Simulated scan of single mutants.
Amino acid sequence: MAEDILLYTNPMSRGRMARWMLEEVGRPYRVEVLDYGTTMKAPAYLAVNPMGKVPAIVHDGAVVTEAAAICAYLADAFPEAGLVPAAGPARAAYFRWLFFAAGPLEAAVTNRALQVDVPADKSAFVGYGSFGRVMDVLEQAVSRADYVAGDRFSAADVYVGSHIGYGLHFGSMERRPAFERYDERLASRPAFQRAAEADDRLMAEAPGGAA
């Protein structure tokens, strides 16, 4: 089928973001679950994503990798889902916060988790300044309205919201009331719940998974 979508993923990965986005789009898709160190590094998958990581999607013969790119691509490919704001301030905010999360936010959270301390006089080199500054800016972003691009949910919320949800769950982000309210709002979405249930089920079915 011309619009068949294949998702390469693992339930313990950023592939959860891509599945959530696919559920929001509402188009049929197939799933291929890959294992770290084996099928994810096998020649067949490296031909799809030479980085040997997930997620990746294949749509109409085109490969898209990187979770933020997958969210943006699917929103554009299926405009009827209404996940891209119209031109204007909302669309500007959409791109701003989508790429803020893919850049400064992810870098700051990763460095903190790895206990990488950036000297104050070298903060300009890392592109995010400091972890505290990133948290303050993110808090402002999710406090202005119900969603990061305004009053309507968009693909940017899938990506930003996933980072906040993971950060709160794993303790890699500060538990601020604004983050918790935003996370609760997104977790109530049917598409989020369908995606989470599917990935949780895969985890439970895996060898050594939860009962």
Rank of each mutant, 00 (worst) to 15 (best):
Y182K: 04
V58F: 02
R133N: 15
A47C: 04
K41Y: 11
K122A: 10
P43G: 09
P177E: 04
L168Y: 02
L105Q: 02
D157H: 06
V109D: 03
T65F: 14
F170N: 09
G127P: 02
T110C: 14
P104T: 07
A101E: 07
L105S: 04
Y159L: 01
A44D: 10
G26Q: 02
N49W: 04
Y36K: 11
G15V: 00
S143F: 09
G15Y: 01
L98R: 00
R14A: 14
T39G: 02
V33A: 10
A187S: 15
K41Q: 13
M12R: 10
I164P: 00
E174V: 11
E139D: 13
A18P: 02
N49L: 13
R175C: 03
R112T: 10
A90F: 10
V126S: 12
H169S: 12
A102R: 05
P43L: 07
R144N: 13
P28R: 00
A120C: 14
R181Y: 02
F100G: 06
V160N: 06
G127H: 03
Y73Q: 03
E197R: 14
V33I: 08
A195W: 04
H59T: 14
D146M: 10
S172G: 10
F179Y: 11
V142D: 01
D60S: 10
D151T: 14
V58L: 07
L168R: 05
Y36L: 08
M40N: 11
K53C: 12
F170I: 08
E184N: 03
E24F: 03
D117T: 15
Y147E: 04
K122L: 14
A113R: 15
A204Q: 07
S130M: 13
F179G: 06
P89K: 00
N49Y: 03
R112Q: 10
D136Y: 08
D121H: 13
V142T: 04
Y166E: 11
L98E: 03
F170G: 06
M203C: 15
P207C: 06
R14T: 14
M21W: 02
H169K: 14
V54S: 10
Q193C: 05
L6A: 03
